[in-house]
Design a protein around this nucleic acid. Structure first.
Length: 340
DNA sequence: TTCATTTGACCTGC
DNA sequence: GCAGGTCAAATGAA
């Protein structure tokens, strides 16, 4: 295990090094490619060894509640949970290895986030035909709310809780490092607007809405709640669909690149290149990201996690996924989030 | 200065 | 009346 962690830590270090060099090599695609290739190989080595290790030792039956099946994230999550719940887990147990657990969990979160993104992106493609209608209906609902606000002299009328907003619940592994209350990365930017103790629940429920709710009237919301019997799992309830990314100027919430989708299901229709948000900021942000403590950003930035995902899923010898990230950098799409 | 989070109060459905 | 959901002022961070 130590060896695996060394590979992982090495990969992270490489990524950080390249982040510092990025401004100098930003205009040199060859240098960029070789830098990424280096990081990719480091991650690939770690992945391969980890897979070998897991295949030889992973003999327990998993009853995890996390989303997806037989995924890398799931395997990892199981190990992380095993370690947390039973501190005697063979190679990883013991407080002295907390850093290892943290790195493992980082990997888990990274991987899981992108599984989410992919699944969501695939869904969007599949449902592309109906989205406009759905979005229109939601907009109408909001229009009604706005009218209500105008009519109400004091406090705006609130939307009915029994609205027709689609509701779906998903389980995620909870972050165990840093701000453990931070909701899992799911590719959208969220703003917390409330937290409430729920009767009969051990942990408070947090309420989030799309950051661009006001700007684009995006109705998407989500509730985040830890499970009573397993704080390592958070239950995320999504309500409403994002419509902000449908705006040409909307700064966030784009589906994952088409070629990543192909990795999941090659029979899925692919998004035409021109539909994909082009501006790729390759800022490999470290732990001290400036995005704010509980927001997650995918739309315009591709942090380390993005690259790691491409590495984890591209195979050790193929550079396609990474290329896919860089191909996008030619277009001219300017984030306007900070302009206002 | 701007933007996100916190938190008590308010609103609404049951 | 209660509980869940939301608002908005206060506060803090960058």
């Amino acid at each position: 295990m130590e060896e695996v962690m060394n590979f992982i830590m090495r990969a992270f270090e490489l990524a950080k090094d390249h982040e510092q060099e990025l401004p100098n090599i930003a205009n040199n695609p060859e240098m960029l490619f070789s830098s990424i290739d280096e990081v990719e190989k480091a991650f690939s080595s770690a992945k391969e060894r980890l897979m070998m290790m897991l295949s030889s030792q992973h003999d327990t039956t998993t009853t995890t509640t996390t989303k997806g099946s037989n995924s890398f994230a799931q395997i990892l999550s199981h190990d992380v949970f095993m370690q947390n719940n039973h501190d005697h887990h063979g190679q990883m147990g013991g407080s002295g290895n907390s850093m290892h657990a943290h790195s493992m969990n980082q990997l888990l979160l990274m991987q899981h986030s992108f599984e989410m993104l992919r699944s969501r992106g695939t869904l969007m493609i599949g449902e592309m035909g109906g989205r406009d209608v759905e979005g229109l209906e939601i907009s109408k609902g909001l229009e009604g709310e706005m009218q209500g606000i105008e009519e109400s002299p004091s406090r705006p009328k609130k939307s009915s809780r029994k609205n027709d907003m689609e509701k779906r619940t998903e389980m995620f592994p909870a972050p165990q490092i840093g701000n453990t209350e931070m909701p899992p990365e799911d590719g959208f930017t969220w703003r917390k607007y409330g937290q409430k103790e729920i009767l009969g629940r051990k942990y408070p429920r947090s309420y989030y809405r799309c950051t661009h709710q006001k700007l684009y009237l995006c109705p998407a919301k989500k509730q985040v709640q830890r499970l009573d019997n397993n704080p390592n799992i958070v239950e995320v309830t999504y309500r409403g669909e994002h419509i902000c990314h449908k705006s040409l100027t909307a700064p966030s919430s784009y589906p994952p690149p088409p070629n990543l989708l192909v990795n999941i299901n090659t029979t899925q229709a692919t998004i035409p290149p021109e539909a994909w948000p082009p501006a790729v900021n390759l800022g490999l942000r470290g732990g001290n990201s400036s995005g704010g403590p509980s927001t997650s950003r995918f739309g315009i930035d591709y942090p380390v996690a993005d690259m790691a995902d491409a590495m984890f899923n591209s195979g050790s010898s193929s550079g396609n996924s990474m290329e896919s990230l860089f191909h996008l950098s030619d277009d001219k799409w300017e984030p306007d989030e900070k302009i206002n």
